[in-house]
Amino acid sequence: MKLLVCVSKTPETTTKIAFADNDTRLDTAGVQYIMNPYDEWYALVRALELKEKFGGSVTVLNVGPAENDTVIRKGLAIGADDAIRINANPKSSLFVAKQIANQAKEGGYDMVFFGKETIDYNGSEVPGMVAELLDMPFISFASHLDLDDDQVATVVRDIEGGTETATLGMPFVISAAKGLAEQRIPNMRGIMMAKRKPLQVVEPIEAADVAVAVKYELPPEKGAVKLIDPENMDELVRLLHEEAKVI
């Protein structure tokens, strides 16, 4: 069984977001990067668990420049067998999806894993695009994935107000949500072994960036907290109605 796990590099969760160059890009000064947690904690770990149970291999794939190798090495340290980096500076989801789809097609993978979204752009766009480009079934927001002996997958996905269960055969694309697996912290031996595992760098295929970010801005700052006397519910209702406008 060949499993492909697509991973992104994102700013650390505690990063203070600021923009540079007339708000056209993230100000990267002082930003520390991590592997997107949904990719690492859920997608990658569940892929590794399936490999450990059924055999096969897990490949991690990233579209990005050489600076991303540290993030890729973490995937290898956690347990992936090898890695591919498509050497590009992507600016749009479709560009990324086309690169991944091309590589996935060449590799003939049985499952293509993603995190449900990256924690920087929160787009949730790439997995669906890849599935479409590969003409494979796609299950998003999966919180449970099992394979039976006939290698038929049962997937539970989160939906509004509940869950939905589906069964499907391989190959397919899946995006992982919380619950699919539990975070694995790489151990010292895994980290030292990671540099000896193959990391293949391939050049991107021709593909246009069809969407370009024009401007970024921060959400409005949260207002100061107002403390309302518990005896004064009328005032609370008035403020919720007139100022917060939520009732």
């Binding site: 991590i34 190798d69 540290t70 090495r73 973490k74 340290a77 975070q183 912290i185 790489p186 151990n187 010292m188 980290i191 030292m192 990671a194 540099k195």
Partner: peptide, 18 residues
């Protein structure tokens, strides 16, 4: 190398957090 340093410190911090 410094790559391993990053990964090792990150793993230690994850362990401490978790």
């Amino acid at each position: 190398s410094e790559d391993e340093v990053d990964l090792l410190l990150g793993a230690a911090k994850d362990l401490a957090d978790q």
